[in-house]
Structure formats: structure tokens, C-alpha cells
Design a protein around this nucleic acid. Sequence first.
DNA 1: ATAAATTCTGTAAACGTTTACAGAATGGAG
DNA 2: CTCCATTCTGTAAACGTTTACAGAATTTAT
Lengths: 341, 341
Amino acid sequence: MGTSTVKDIAEKLNLSVATVSRAINNKEYVKEETRQRVLQALKEYNYVPNEIARSLKLQSTKTVAVIVPDICEAFFGKIIKGIERTIAYREYSIIVADTDEKKENEKRYLDMLFQKRIDALVFATVDLSGDYVKNYFSSFPIVFIDNIPELEDVDCVVIDNAKASRMAVEYLIERGHREIAVIIGSVKETTGYARREGYLDTLKQYEIPVDPDLIQYGNYKEDAGYRCMETLLKQRKEHPFTAVYVTCEMMTFGAIKAIHARGLRIPEDISLVGFDIQDRAKLIFPSITTVRQPESVIGRKVGELLLKRLDEKDSGKHTSEKILLEPYMEEGESVKPINGR
Amino acid sequence: MGTSTVKDIAEKLNLSVATVSRAINNKEYVKEETRQRVLQALKEYNYVPNEIARSLKLQSTKTVAVIVPDICEAFFGKIIKGIERTIAYREYSIIVADTDEKKENEKRYLDMLFQKRIDALVFATVDLSGDYVKNYFSSFPIVFIDNIPELEDVDCVVIDNAKASRMAVEYLIERGHREIAVIIGSVKETTGYARREGYLDTLKQYEIPVDPDLIQYGNYKEDAGYRCMETLLKQRKEHPFTAVYVTCEMMTFGAIKAIHARGLRIPEDISLVGFDIQDRAKLIFPSITTVRQPESVIGRKVGELLLKRLDEKDSGKHTSEKILLEPYMEEGESVKPINGR
DNA sequence: ATAAATTCTGTAAACGTTTACAGAATGGAG
DNA sequence: CTCCATTCTGTAAACGTTTACAGAATTTAT
């Protein structure tokens, strides 16, 4: 179905394009009768505004981009949905880019999106330096999620990762566990670092000595989770533990496999608390007790912050906002109370 | 970093915009020296082409939209990645829309995307009638995936769903199972219908009588899977079975829960074959044997078909293509050989 | 009735590109 | 030196909107 243009409509009705445009956009100073005639003609001639032309003129595309490392992770999917819901009423739409966790793709997309003149960006980066994205700070508002680059004055929406660890570890302590191993993604990233801090703080608070050998580091991947767990199990004689806390989803899966591979059972032999385990994985037996992030709230907060920034676009400089959200526990069957708890 | 325009560059160099534009786009008939001067200036003045203006002039946005019912499903995520990889070299980029499985959202997005003048669309619809999308057939090429609406002459890329069922059922038969229950999503949708046909055909081929009570219908959701499985288990005395084949991912999870809820074990008490179970779920014990779709191949095929359609855009009418791909089995530990197999 | 204020409409420019067309410069052949 | 072909460059229009400005029509005030 070919569409017609403002000019077409104007000619049909013997009006100028200006008047037609005004009628379409509900501007004032259009005679009611004229407006009706135009509205009628729009339907009749199947007019659909050309957003491209409009964007060019208005210098705004009404488009927000979201760059994520892996679109397949439900974590990001839910956040994206949350954002979408929040900004849709203002006629903004979303364009999603998947970087496959590669910095060079981040660059490629940033350039491309700037060329496309997006109005704003939501960025889950894997480049903690923030070297490249800096260049775009003055081009459009940017809100960071998940991992936050080490830069001054950036807008971001994240959960309190330290608190997340505190909740997980306390959950275990309350159920009688005192020897608690932990598997952590790289502490070079903000998330991993904070998660370790939370673990250490909590042990200190409950006056439980820290055994460094019970802290294993990986890289967020399943394999790493498997290897970390193997290491823990091998040294179990000398460094015993009754529970393990794994601080990210994929590593949790790896750890579970390693436990099963040794013929051990969860939670009978080892209790386990995971991180960010999504619904569908929880359906499987034994269901995992996990710390979770409120993805849809994150999405909503991001959306709200975006709208705020978009509205103040012209009006001078603002100070950046760091929005910290609360994680929560989701109880499964992977933790067994011990010592009579 | 504010950018400059072709006009800016032209003025700096005392050239016309035409010449600058030609130099930028590597057109012929530009003196080598001039071209170099321009290229130099582009860097110096930080020029970035405005895609919006270019799109308006060229009547092409170099953008392909993908509409999916749920962006959180890894199935779609992988397909999207596959498409992206395939069309990126031609400078096409992707815009993703999530309909939440609602027809009204499909309409909303179709309208919006047309306004944005996308060049092509990939559509995983939930509206089998295809009533609304029809309107856009003449506006841009459309390739359907997953569920295909009941319309003549549409381009689509899907797996052979009947064959998928044949593979699953044969897998069970080869391992000694003859009483095989099946849980199916609605047969009103193309996928579900074909999957049932494959099941029935295979039983016939092996001369196994069909027990209609062993065929349960749901709606693709986890709850339905749970209920179907409960029904099967309740009537097990009169309608015994040793294995169950569940034809979609979420229902598989529900079915597993129902089995566990009865205190039964997989595969010791009941063997199970799932459908489309994604990697991360497979990590959990017991891992599920499942039929899978080659998502990245689907993505690639879609991408290739898109490019083909985009290239022939002007050159007259084409006949539609239905690309059928092969499913494959992924072996887990959820099937136990019986009767000495 | 006239002036002033208000409402309505049209003209034309602008957004940043690409490109048909024409004209200028260059080089070579005769 | 002239002519032609070729290479290079510039002018201006076009893509489809929105909008400043001005002018026309209508209403209100005097």
C-alpha cells in the first residue's frame, strides 16, 4: 500500500502544505472545518507520516538504543521490556544492539547509532575503561546498566551488589552454615568487586574467619564455574565447607555440574545459593535458591531517567544520577538447614 | 562532540557540497588531490554522515526490523544474532520489537515501523490470520519465522516440524519404548499441528497403536505442561506409558515439575524428550534429551533471503520461498533404554 | 465605519544529504 | 591552433516534513 505525502493531500484539498501539516499535528490556528477536511483526506488517501523526514526536520528520531553484551540473556531481555513499557507512551521506540561481549562491536554500534542520530542510549558495556563511549557523552544522554565504567559523573541504574551478597550469605548463616565458599566473576568489574566486598563484610559481621582458599575467581562463564567448584571440592579435606555461594548465573550452572560430577547432591551434601537464576532454570529440580535483580524495576527506572534527560536536553548541565536498587532472595530447595536450624 | 555537515566541509575547502559528497561516497570523477583534501577535512572537522538525511534522500533506511513475541526467549535471541551477522556486511542494522504475544502490539509495531520506513521485516507473529500484516505486503519484504500465518505466497524460514517429531519418537522407539505419551501446544498453530502429525506418522510406521488419551493439548505455557502431565499420570493405570515427548520448551519444564511432584524420577520411572530446550537449562541435572532447532542457521537463511529480496526490490514480482530446515537431536540423560535395548 | 486584535492560510526556507545537468578545465589528436 | 573527448566541479532540485514570517480573512472594540 503506497502512501501519500503532505503535499499530495494539500493539492487534493487546494490547501498549502503548511496548513495540512498544522492540521495533522493539532497545532492551533486551523479552522475547525479545514481540520476536519484534512483529517478526512488523510484516511481517504491513506496518509502515513514519514518519520524520516520528520526526524530530519525536528532533529530528533524519537529512538532510544540499548546496547547489551548478549541479547539471549533473559536478564537483559526483561530490562529492555521494562524500558520499552516506560517510554512507549511518549512515542519513543527502542533499537537493540548485541555486541557479543566484544569491545570492537561496541565501537561499531556506537558509531552506527550516532549516525542514525538516536536520541539516547542505554548501555551495558563490557569495556570498563569507558574510553570510547566518552566521546559520545556530549552527543546524547547515556544511562549505564549492569557493569559501570570507571568514569566520573555517569548516569546509571544498578542493584546494590554488596547488599546482594550480604543477603545471600546471611541467608546461609541463618540456616546454620558457617563454612561458606564463594565463587566470583572477575573482581576487575564493578559488579564482581562489590559482590566480594559484601561477602567479606558479612563474615566479619558474624565473626566468621575468612579462609582465602574458599574464595575462587572465574570469568562469568559456565566452564569457569565448573573449574572453581572442582578446585573447592578437591581441597575440601583441608578447607571444609557446607555451602557455596556462586555470584553469577552461568557459573552457578557450571558449579552444579561439578557437584553432580562428583556424585554429590544438592542440598543434602552441599547447600548452594546462586545469583540471578532466571525463572526457566528454576523450574528444574532441584530448584535453586538465588539472589535476584528486579529486572523490570531496573527497566522502569532506566526509562524514567531517560525521559528526564531527554526533557532537559537543552536546559543546561545536570548532575549525574546513580540509582541503586534492592536485590531480593528467591527461595528454592538448594539450601539445607544444618546444626539444628 | 558536535559534528559537522557536508556543507561545513565544503565551505572550509571552498568546494561545492556536490564535490564533497562525491568524495565521501567514493564516486568517480573526483580529482585525486581533491578527494584527499576532503578526506583530510572529514577527520579534522569530525564529520559523521547524517543517516537520517541520507535515508530521506535515498528512500532507504538500511534498517531491518524483527518482531518477536518475547525477546527473552533465547530461541529468538539466537535467530536475531544470526540475522545480524548475515546482513551486517551490507550495512544493514536491526531494530527489535517485542510484542508480548499480543496482537494489538503487533499492529502498533507494524504501523510504527512503517512510519520509520524500515526496508524489510522479519516477523514471528502470533496472529495466524495474518489479517493485519497483509496490508504491508506491498510496502516492504517480509520473512516469517516460527509460526506462519495462513496466507498464500509468503516467504518463510522454519524447521520441518513433522520431521522433528519423527526424530524424537524414533529416538524413543529405538530405545525400546512403545507406549509414548505426547504433550502438544495448540494444534491450531502451524507448528503444533505439524508436530502432532509427525508423532502420529511415526507410530503408524512402527505399527504402534495410537492411544488418544496419551495425547494431551496445552497452550505452550509452563502451567499447561504441568496440567497435561498430571492428567497423563493420573490415568496411567488404564493408559500406561514409559516415555513422554513434550513439544515445546516451557511445557517441558512444567511436565518435569509434575513428574517430580509425584515423586517420580527421570529417567528411571519415566523417560522424557523435550523440544527446543536451550543450553542453559540443559546444564541442570538431569539433562534433557531434546529436539532442537538450528537457530543460527535459521538466522542466516533469513538474512540471506532478506538480502535477496532487498536486491530485487525494484525488479518485478518474485515467487515466495519457503525454506525448510532440519531439526536435530541433542542427547541428554532423560531417556532410559528399556526392554534390553 | 474604522481600527485593532485575532484567527486562519500561504510562501518559502530549512533540516543534511544525493544527483541530474550543465559548464569549466584538461589532455590529446588532428 | 582547433576540436573533441574526458575528467572534474558547481548549481540547483529533490527527498517529506515543520515553521518563521507575512499577508488575508474574520472578529471585536471603539
